[in-house]
Design a protein around this nucleic acid. Structure first.
Lengths: 339, 339
DNA sequence: GTATAGTGGGACATAATATGTCACACCGGG
DNA sequence: CCCGGTGTGACATATTATGTCCCACTATAC
């Protein structure tokens, strides 16, 4: 995209929404002319009143005219529509991608940022910012947020900023030790995010490798039990999605389990669960915290993952997360839609 | 200007205002950083609260950062400023021209439309539309509007549209016969404008060439006298500005008067008055209606004139019209500022 | 040391704007 | 003749922008 449009979007982000709305109105009128407001509003899925405001504006701009038979474009309106046609396709590329993702995945909302995090490291931060904005939009004071691990989640924590909406929000790690390096562990990221947000946090101190007996007794420890209960009652979960094999390697998974993961064709990973391309769980890391069965009962689930290489993993995981929000990037979204 | 920007402006006219405001804020911060809100608000001449809203937005966009010492641009902010620099100059060219005209002419408001009516006939219509928008902004129900003649005023009448704000507005011709062709006479244009506006109008039936006696007695006719009184009490005058010699020729001015006009170096003409380059009246067509002395007592005076060839005439006339609004075009404005 | 003038940020009432929801007058075709 | 479409006006309400305070904090000058 040309840098100018990029700059425009930065200085006036909702410009594109307005432009798109007006463009669609002109477009529809050009196709259905002459048409009345009510019929057009129904067709465009917007309320009659906002359509009326818009058409009155467009009429003032001499782009359309209205008489008793309905509205139609003026000559100038047709010209403008033609001028805008190509540009809108490009400028609205991301919005189109978002719409396509929402449709294909059957999820309520997808957010696509420009770039490809496989190729440009800063795109991950951009996703982080988008995710933070999304969190701030959904969170209420007093909420509990469960945060998973991974490099993408680290970027989210990195981009977190304080906000009045985050007042009294409590951050907790989503699950116990998954075998990651310390800087990508849920505990670390949870603490970092909370600090950046000026919020409170609680950590889950559960070693990676434990015998079943030790595990069972640790869970009964009051300090651990309390945090686990907080996690269970969280109102939001934020997590990344990984490529199954990559994640398994990074976690130095024992050969036996690794064989299982490969043999059962796992392609995606999220907070310790491994999924095959159909979204079936084929392996899970045994630890405490959020379990997959809990997710449907959590108000807001945000999945963050980008990069063309992760498109397959995202597709696989999202099959089992119909009410999750997805924050991704252009690279992944295009690989997705292009399939 | 590239057609895309043209289209953007058409579809979202106040976009440029927002862009300009935000651009100026970024620009000022880049120069004065670190600087606080209050000092910056004073420097930019905007209220602290709106500046605060803007800076909060820009901070959210990651274009500037704030700490206890004040605000400064981020790296991204600097880059965006650089990207926008050239484009803003072009996009805001008209606004700059308006500001320059207001300054140079000492008038409260100048409106500049794109193009040059000398070269593109449609620019006159564009001026007409701008003039109509301006009239609608200023008029109140029940107002009386005096309308002069000329081809430019014909374009204004052409572009007039009905409006709730024009309810019960009465249109009257500014002055009696000036020797023009019928389609450019004030009477004709007045009637046309009123019809397009769905408003009422009164006409002034005074033949061009009359003896002084006939003239004096006609003015005492009740029908004429009533209209003249309406004209005297008008709250708005809208008129064009012409090149003196061109207008004199078009009006088939008798050789004696023509000689006078040329000998005294008349350059501008407006509603029957001829002005030299210093704004002095060097000749006037003797007829009834608005006289030059009335203008200072009229709330709103709008002068409409465009085309590079008219720049000198506009300058000359506007010297004596310090509280007039001016609607002009890029061609005239550039010729003006370039002088 | 302290006084001071600057900083950003929070809070709240009010103005301005957008929107939802009606009712009305009109016109053309069954 | 009426019915379903049209645009337009009107008004209450939700939403947003703005004006006007205040506060805590921190550099800096003294």
């Amino acid at each position: 995209m040309e840098p100018l449009v990029e700059a425009l979007k930065k200085l006036s982000p909702d410009l594109l929404d307005v432009m798109q709305k007006r463009y669609e109105i002109l477009h529809s009128i050009s196709l259905m002319a002459p048409i009345g407001r009510r019929a057009l509003a129904a067709s465009l899925g917007m309320s009659e009143r906002v359509l009326r405001s818009e058409t009155e504006f467009l009429k003032g701009q001499n782009l359309l005219s209205a008489d008793v038979s309905g509205m139609r474009l003026t000559e100038e309106g047709h010209e403008l529509l033609h001028t805008l046609h190509d540009w809108m396709r490009e400028a609205l590329g991301l919005k189109e991608l978002e719409a396509a993702l929402q449709r294909k995945l059957g999820i309520p909302r997808a957010i696509v940022v420009a770039g490809d995090s496989d190729r440009s490291p800063w795109v991950k931060k951009e996703m982080g910012r988008a995710c933070v904005a999304c969190m701030k939009e959904l969170l209420e004071p007093g909420d509990i947020v469960a945060v998973a691990g991974g490099t993408t989640m680290a970027a989210v924590a990195e981009m977190m900023t304080p906000d009045a909406k985050l007042r009294d929000v409590l951050f907790v790690p989503a699950r116990g030790g998954l075998g990651e390096d310390v800087e990508n562990q849920a505990n670390t990221i949870c603490a970092k995010m909370a600090e950046k947000a000026m919020g409170r946090y609680r950590l889950l101190h559960v070693p990676d490798q434990l015998s079943d007996e030790a595990h069972a007794s640790l869970v009964e420890e009051p300090a651990v039990k309390e945090v686990l209960e907080l996690i269970q009652s969280c109102r939001m979960v934020v997590h990344g999605i990984g490529d199954a094999v990559t994640m398994a390697k990074r976690r130095k998974t024992p050969p036996a389990e690794m064989g299982n993961i490969i043999a059962r064709h796992a392609v995606a990973e999220a907070f310790g669960y491994y999924f095959n391309e159909y979204g079936d769980v084929v392996h899970k890391v045994k630890t405490v915290g959020i379990q997959l069965e809990h997710l449907p009962h959590v108000e807001h689930v945000i999945a963050v993952a980008g990069g063309a290489s992760k498109a397959k993993a995202i597709r696989a995981y999202m099959k089992r997360a119909p009410h999750s929000l997805l924050v991704t990037d252009e690279g992944a979204a295009k690989a997705f839609v292009g399939e």
